[in-house]
Amino acid sequence: MELTVNSVARTVQSPPLTSLLTVLREELDITSPKAGCESGGCGACTVLVDGQPRRSCLTAVCAVDGAEVTTVEGLGTPEDLSRVQQAFIHHYAAQCGFCTDGLIVAATAYVGGGGSDDTGDIGEALAGHYCRCTGYVKILEAVAAVARGDTFDTASTASSANNTYVTIAGAES
């Protein structure tokens, strides 16, 4: 089978029922899609197949023969981050980082498809992606900011609108 993965043509030897996740990770050594549950439940393995977000753990590789597969490695590099990647840094949308790759892929498809900055819309598009660290607040903010067309300073991070700061009486410095 032939795949184009992150713009590179690859020939796949794995048997046809092998999951795309296993092919990417174990045969092609592309490790950003994560085996969070291997059952379609968590979203950590999501990749783009011909531009559409797909759970690579649910996808038999034979079903994507000839397709163009994009993982987060194909979206941007440390020197040339995509806007979604920049937003995830600036809005602190990644903590342990394990769900991040799948989320960035899905968010890229959402924004690329003209998705709005409405939190409800974003939530509906990404709700199958689990994150146990962030409580989702900053993920939604990051994606909304991309949808709004913000530009991002990756040397700093943004506070959420939902936070206010006070100092206890007598402890001002």
């Binding site: 993982t71 490695e73 981050l81 990647q85 995830f88 840094i89 600036h90 602190y92 991040t100 700093s156």
Partner: peptide, 19 residues
């Protein structure tokens, strides 16, 4: 409000986890 030390690795799929 500095970014995560490992933030770039996390968003580019470069962070190496045990698996």
């Amino acid at each position: 409000r500095l970014p995560r030390y490992d933030g770039v690795g996390h968003v580019t799929g470069r962070t190496t986890y045990v698996d």
